[in-house]
Amino acid sequence: MSLQEKYQSLLELANNNGTTYELSESDSALVVTGVAPSSEAKQELWDEYNRIDPDYRTGDLVLNITVGDAAGGGVHTYTVEPGDSLSKIGAKYGIAWKAIFDANRDQISNPDLIHPGQELKIPI
C-alpha cells in the first residue's frame, strides 16, 4: 500500500474542509505541506492522522499544516533569553550573527545590545 493510499482519508478530509496542500515524498515519508482555513480544520486533520497512525509513531508522514491568516505566519521567531548574544543565537541555527542583525534592524540598533524576551526574526 502506498503512503498516499494509507493517508487517503486524511487527504480527502483536507479537500473537503478547505485545506490547500501540496504533496512531496522523501525516502522515508510523505510530506504534506499546506494551509488550513481555521485551527478547527487543522485539528480535524490531526485527529484523522492520530486515528490512522496512533500517537503519530510511524514517522512516514510529515504533516506541515499552518493556519491561514495567522499572525506572523511563515516567519520563524526566536525569543531572547538572559545571557544570549546575536552570535550565540546564530550558532543555534548555523547562521552568522550579522544575518540576524540585518533581519532585525527595525528593532536592534546596537548588535551588542539585545534584551531577554525580545522576539527576533530568524532569516532561514
Binding site: S26, V62, H76
Partner: peptide
C-alpha cells in the same frame, strides 16, 4: 508525479528552529 521533498533549510537551521 509526486516531487521529491527537499528540506526547507539546512540541518543546523532546522535544528535551531
Amino acid at each position: 508525479p509526486v516531487p521529491v521533498a527537499t528540506p526547507a533549510a539546512p540541518d543546523p537551521a532546522l535544528k535551531g528552529k
